[in-house]
Design a protein around this nucleic acid. Structure first.
Length: 481
DNA sequence: TGAAATGTTGGGGCG
DNA sequence: ACGCCCCAACATTTC
């Protein structure tokens, strides 16, 4: 009789789960366990919004396992110690998990695998999370990619359609005496209830991920190419947190889209799958350049004279009180739902790093804590892209104007009206620049600038020029990354 | 997956 | 009719 431990981490699903399938194939008894780290002292410990998601995702996984005759054991503590205790208790002779790629995860997993193998156990790990793992896509001479387009071409050449396995139809029962901790005891949910909006915005779990994919692929995806940039429309897939926690795999997504759009993908699907490619690229980058979660990939950017006193401006940005409607709408959407439209992420990031001249790491930290889809690779790449110091980054002089971006991508002001209700009555003509509205117009709309809604915290023209001066220190130097 | 400054062109008003 | 100026509208350059 062989007993396997199946260690769930960020692969919280039953379908297309290779570690789960192997465990079932090779063992009579399978013990699914989730192990929560006891201390949150490590630098990129899971953020508050992600903890909320994790709670509900674990609950959902446990429900699914129970419906198949099993359940999810929950423990907290050092994974190696927990696994060893569980092995001693159950006589398990093998351990399975799906691989992760963040630096701290790699260090931990390497250590756990080595230690368990020295204990005499069989340890097998799998790819559940990516179309291609970071070392599978390489430049001709073996170096990692630093530019998206050739990376993407290499992925296309390797082939995107990779079969996804169906979920098991039954699971062996757990030994009777096996008792874990309760989900609630992990304390993942907030002590103060700031999560009302999260419940309205999201359905968590594997079934919800599949439903969301089904809806998106049968309607939204066809207009994705044009609609995805409009934050006032429901034009995005909203799959990111499901993908991050592994409630669904990129293989499942691609297969699903291809099966429903024979023989070729629609233009919308092409551009959506390309975004899946960006996720793979971000994982590739963080794997090969693990310092880039808090250190610029391009060393020249160490010389940027960031401001050193900015606590107040940072706080206003975080609270959505900058006086720029599209910025404040985005930051409030983030706070209320744990998510922000991608176009708006770029705009708020540009304001923070360029106009406010605040280090991109501050923005990355805030997103890390507040996003339900916070992903170390995607977050680091995104912030470095905006700041200009990353792979395939925006040139340093590319500075978004929040008024023009608002007018271009939220022309009727729908998005601003939804998230900045104190401006809702303003006509579209001025909703992205209330300081230019006539006094009579403002009072007729119930807006009292400086009182009911703040005046802009920076002058766009002057702060743009300051940013250009500050960032010009990287000119005329060779790349040292 | 910018924005602003600068350059060019061409139609229309006007002496 | 002609030259001149003005200035949108568009194109190019620069940051």
């Amino acid at each position: 009789m062989s007993t396997a431990i199946l260690w769930f981490r960020r692969d919280l699903r039953l379908a297309d789960n290779p570690a789960l399938l192997s465990a079932l194939e090779e063992s009579e008894t399978v013990i699914p366990v989730y192990i929560h780290p006891q201390s949150s002292r490590q630098p990129w410990a899971i953020g508050s919004a992600s903890r909320w998601w994790l709670h509900h995702s674990l609950k959902s996984l446990d429900d699914s396992l129970r419906s198949l005759g099993s359940k999810l054991l929950i423990h907290s503590g050092d994974p190696l110690l927990v696994l060893r205790a569980l092995i001693a208790q159950t006589g398990a002779d093998r351990v399975y998990w799906n691989r992760l790629y963040d630096p701290a995860d790699i260090d931990r997993d390497t250590w756990v695998k080595k230690s368990l193998r020295e204990d005499g156990l069989t340890v097998e790990t799998y790819n559940s999370n990516l179309l291609y793992e970071p070392w599978e896509i390489r430049r001709p001479k073996g170096e990692p990619y630093k530019v998206f387009t050739p990376f993407w071409k290499a992925m296309l050449a390797a082939g995107l359609r990779i079969p996804a396995e169906p979920p098991p139809t039954r699971m062996p029962a757990l030994p009777q005496d096996l008792q874990g901790e309760s989900l609630d005891s992990l304390g993942l949910l907030p002590a103060i209830p700031w999560d009302h909006g999260f419940y309205d915005a999201w359905s968590v779990g594997e079934a919800a991920a599949l439903t969301q994919l089904d809806e998106f692929s049968s309607s939204g995806v066809f207009a994705y190419k044009t609609q995805r940039d409009l934050p006032g429309q429901a034009g995005t897939s909203r799959m990111s947190p499901h993908l991050h926690f592994g409630e669904i795999s990129p293989r499942q997504i691609v297969v699903h889209l291809m099966e429903h759009q024979e023989p070729g993908l629609s233009a919308g699907s092409e551009s959506y799958v390309r975004e899946i490619g960006w996720r793979e690229f971000a994982t590739h980058l963080l794997f090969h350049f693990p310092h880039t979660c808090d250190h610029p990939l391009d060393d020249r950017f160490l010389r940027i004279p960031w401001r050193d006193t900015y606590a107040n401006d940072l706080r206003q940005w975080q609270k959505g009180q900058t006086g720029f409607p599209i910025i404040d709408a985005g930051m409030r959407e983030l706070w209320h739902t744990g998510w922000m439209h991608n176009r708006v992420r770029m705009i708020v990031a540009s304001l923070l790093t360029k106009n406010l001249l605040i280090p991109w790491q501050e923005g990355a930290r805030w997103f890390w804590d507040t996003l339900v889809d916070a992903d170390l690779g995607c977050n680091s790449m995104g912030w470095q892209w905006t700041a200009g110091c990353g792979a395939d980054a925006a040139p340093y002089f590319r500075i978004f104007n929040p008024v023009l971006q608002g007018e271009r991508f939220d022309p009727e002001g729908d998005y601003v009206r939804r998230w900045v209700p104190e401006l809702a009555k303003l006509p579209a003509r001025v909703i992205h620049k209330p300081w230019e509205a006539r006094a009579s117009e403002l009072s007729a709309c119930g807006v009292n600038l400086g009182q009911s809604y703040p005046l802009p915290i920076v002058d766009l023209k002057a702060s743009r020029e300051r940013a250009l001066r500050a960032f010009s220190v990287i000119k005329n130097e060779s790349m040292t990354a």
